[in-house]
């Protein structure tokens, strides 16, 4: 606990942010988020939007895998459901953007509930593998249900339009995505202050005890699946408005692995972990681009970029699992703790 922050009420003790220093930092973050789009160029705005989408999806996966302990390799597939729903609604009904996003979330949630149904009988690794199966089946559906998904060529998505303003640049999409993502993250944080979130953690740690305490396992596992795939669906919908084309190849198994890696690297089971992990994993390819560009190489740098990225990706997963299983958020916390005591350290 930070020095000099005595709590005077239970409400104070349970708050998300609880000291004046934290409020100050939050204010600075808020100002930074508001000011960023005005100082950043197209490239950085593009990245910011991508980061927002990834944070939303990673937070969703974290609820399922980090907090409830149900490993899923299907996050990309659920995003795909969300993306296709949004694309189809936009194309066929022309319904408002926010409604489309909600619809994307709901349809993805239904998918999540179906995939989660076996989770009572099928546990651990077997459940993870069944989510791979779900991904394969969904990919097949995306590629072959021509009437709805447009088959292999997919669907092109018109730019999002709200109140007559067309969101066709990264600058404009930023103002749509960032608030949505912030709401989703706060929602997740709130979840774990209540009995629902606690029940999820209980299921992860010792599901037999959870049952003895009266938590109906199937209902809560389904709830977790539903919630995390809702998040994925909304993130997928945002993805659709961002890239403006949705094809069956847009959401491969590799992307599910990307998100799983993001929460492992960031720190499973913590809200901050999903955020840090998503940011880190999105930035790493960009950082690699820079590094590879600087290196004096005889061959064309761009040729080796892709394989190097793949290797680094795998190495990050292995490295963090072996050396820092608590992830980036643990490193962050250690740095913070150091600075809490900094002037007084011997």
């Amino acid at each position: 606990m930070r020095i000099g922050t005595a709590r005077s009420s239970y409400r104070h003790d349970e708050a998300l942010f609880d000291s004046r220093t934290q409020y100050a930092w939050l204010a600075i973050l808020g100002v930074a988020l508001l000011g960023f789009p005005f100082v950043a160029d197209e490239y950085w705005l593009y990245l910011a939007c991508l980061v927002a989408i990834n944070i939303a999806s990673a937070t969703g996966l974290n609820i399922l895998t980090g907090y409830t302990g149900l490993v899923s390799l299907g996050q990309a597939a659920f995003m795909g459901i969300g993306a296709y729903t949004v694309a189809a609604f936009e194309q066929k009904f022309g319904t408002p953007v926010l409604l489309n996003l909600l619809a994307g979330g709901f349809v993805a949630m239904l998918g999540g509930l179906v995939v989660g149904l076996p989770s009572l009988r099928v546990k651990g690794l077997y459940l993870a593998i069944s989510t791979i199966a779900a991904s394969v089946v969904l990919h097949f559906v995306f590629a072959n249900w021509h009437s709805v998904t447009g088959g292999h060529s997919g669907i092109t998505v018109a730019p999002a339009e709200i109140l007559g303003i067309s969101f066709d640049t990264s600058f404009r999409l930023y103002w749509l995505f960032v608030p949505i993502t912030i709401m989703m993250v706060i929602g997740a944080a709130n979840l774990f202050r209540t009995r629902i979130g606690r029940a999820f953690i209980a299921i992860r740690d010792r599901d037999i005890s959870a049952e003895v305490l009266g938590i109906p396992l199937l209902r809560y596992k389904l709830l977790s699946f539903g919630l995390s795939s809702f998040y994925a669906g909304v993130a997928g919908g945002m993805w659709a408005y961002f890239f403006r084309v949705v094809t069956p190849e847009s959401f491969p198994l590799l992307m599910s692995i990307f998100f799983l890696a993001a929460i492992i690297v960031g720190g499973m089971g913590t809200i901050l972990g999903a955020i840090l992990g998503a940011i880190f994993m999105t930035m790493v390819p960009e950082a690699l681009k820079l590094i590879v560009g600087w290196l004096p190489l005889s061959t064309d740098a761009t040729l080796i970029l892709s394989p190097v990225r793949t290797i680094v990706f795998g190495a990050l997963i292995v490295g963090f699992l072996v050396f820092e299983p608590l992830g980036l958020q643990e490193i962050w916390r250690r740095i913070r703790r150091f600075f809490h005591l900094w002037p007084f350290r011997a």
Binding site: G187, N190, T194, R198, L213, G214
Partner: peptide, 13 residues
């Protein structure tokens, strides 16, 4: 847990 009544939507907000 069993005696509380908060549901998901309550929890998110």
């Amino acid at each position: 847990h069993t005696h509380l009544r908060t549901n998901v939507l309550d929890a998110l907000f």
